[in-house]
Design a protein around this nucleic acid. Structure first.
Lengths: 316, 316
DNA sequence: TTTTTGGATGTAATCCATTACATTCGTAAT
DNA sequence: ATTACGAATGTAATGGATTACATCCAAAAA
């Protein structure tokens, strides 16, 4: 009955009397509205699709937290999907939006070119978070990766290091390229030549950091400092260094990136570039929800602040 | 048109000719099926609701991974919601099931009594994972928490420790009570008296572990070993010990619980009870999906194996 | 040739809540 | 007392896919 719907939606034009009556009947019958009907009618799922490469990296968890908090406040639920950086999977998940099971997407996966995936003309609600494509038409929220890396490496240089290695991730990701640029810029500024053998590309797992570190330490001429593009890598590197019986920071200094919670729990505690993860998540969610409410408003991308957090792994 | 539906669902009784025709038209019109209509009609959302206290604890992330992998295989998506151990929120999320936005629930939140929440008679598809209520009618997957704690504490005792503290979580959670029982049983078995002042209840954050440790170390008579009910607490404890300039394990030994990835990355590496997190997630998902397909099959709860992993934090 | 049979296709009801529009009713204005 | 108006309620269309059932047609059987 129409009136039931009006009661449920708190429509003003229902008399107190009928409202009470309806409510009591709802009680008695244990009636629960079926949202599938509602969703079909209003053509909304009130779901936000969140695409992360992996849920195990605390970096993403924190961002998701931000997204979730904002989403909840606006009465959206989140559909969390891990892509493993697999483009095929990403495409399949994007179908959830095409098929109306999700109203919009926040993607943190570096692997996909969304401008491509969406295609011309279409105006799907998509926000990129952390990672994005250069010259993208799709709005994103991120930090100034180049500058952040530059500051991190400069910090090492001012501590006297001249032999600085870098553990990077896959260069097909923009953030990896940008951070490398920052690294190079700092080296260049201080007249330090770039050495190919002190630069490794890998995935973000601990073990990869550990492995990369071992590789550096196996070299004739060892670096005295390492800049890692993620805290997970840096934590692996710490482990690799300890295995060899070397000390941090006396023998080798280590800088991470992200400032995940664990960074401050390590021994030694980890110097790192803090990204405002929670805030980035919130902002991405806000942008997406704004886009859902105002599909034609053009959205401006957002660059949030970062901060170099100096801890024991660079300054004993 | 009915035939379109038949083509989409690969119904056998469509002639090749019409199928091709329909497919080409679908191509041309860029037609995308609207799942909201489908969902309404077949009265399924193909979503699984996953309730976790917090997504930041890597323990839960790993379980969620298992759930997701199985869910994907069966064509379900997961709706991840964090409850912050807030019963009200949990109830609201459970409405998603009542309202047909999710087909079933896997709950990892210790705070809720599901038997209560669901009420008599109703047969909602709910699985509890890790945490459950005693004498619950609702199937769960977990480990033998009492035995696991017993083994961990016994390990400390056989190393010669007699002053063993425990950092526990809220005793209204069953796992907290069971692990305490295991702890007490081990003490008793070796004739070690229980000391109230060496038992702290707190939440699972690092800082709480750190704080608890500080409290122990501020006491006149300090423990020589600490058993923590989670790795996050243990990691905080390590930090608290280091702050005081004491060494692990020489001055104090530490045992954690869960075996999150970080446990092996710590310095010293953490002795801990390994829970088969990924496997638990998979099993929970399998059970739930089975229940969805066979609502009336009674499901048996599952107890999976645990393992004590001995590392540096107890044996230098 | 006529009837039967079964496969392919079309028609229309269905799932459930929302909402434009129609109707009713009570009250205020004339 | 009668009209007019607005508030409250009811009726019916709508959204999109599924599916029971009806219909159609061609090939096989009589």
């Amino acid at each position: 009955m129409a009136t039931v719907s009006r009661v449920l939606n708190k429509h003003p034009s229902v008399s107190l009397k009928t409202r009470l009556k309806v409510e009591s009947v709802i009680q008695r019958l244990q009636y629960e509205p079926n949202m599938l009907g509602r969703n079909l009618r209003i053509s909304q799922s009130r779901m936000l699709l969140i695409l992360v490469p992996s849920i195990s990296n605390p970096f993403y968890s924190k961002i998701v937290q931000g997204i979730e908090d904002v989403a909840r406040k606006h009465n959206y639920n989140i559909l969390l999907c891990t892509t493993d950086t697999d483009i095929e999977r990403e495409k399949i998940y994007f179908d959830l939006v095409k098929h109306k099971l999700a109203d919009g997407v926040i993607s943190m996966d570096p692997a996909v070119d969304w401008d491509d995936l969406i295609g011309e003309g279409r105006n799907y609600p998509v926000i990129q978070c952390c990672e994005y494509s250069e010259n993208s038409q799709i709005p994103y929220v991120s930090i100034d990766n180049r500058m952040a890396a530059y500051k991190a490496v400069k910090h090492l240089i001012t501590l006297g290091h001249r032999k600085i290695a870098m553990i990077n991730s896959d260069p097909r990701f923009l953030y990896a390229r940008l951070r490398k640029e920052g690294y190079l810029k700092a080296l260049e500024e201080y007249g330090i030549p770039y050495r190919e053998e002190w630069s490794i590309h890998t995935d973000l797992g601990f073990e990869s950091g550990q492995r990369a570190m071992r590789a550096f330490l196996a070299q004739e001429d060892k670096p005295t400092a390492v800049f890692c593009v993620s805290d997970t890598l840096a934590i692996g590197a710490l482990k690799g260094i300890k295995e060899e019986g070397l000390r941090v920071p006396q023998d080798i200094a280590v800088v991470g990136f992200d400032n995940i919670q664990f960074a401050s729990m390590m021994n030694p505690t980890l110097t790192t570039v803090a990204q405002p993860m929670y805030e980035m998540g919130c902002e991405a969610a806000r942008m997406l929800i704004h886009k859902l409410n105002h599909p034609d408003d053009p959205l401006r991308s957002v660059i949030l602040d970062h901060e170099l957090i100096i801890r024991e792994s660079t300054m004993g």
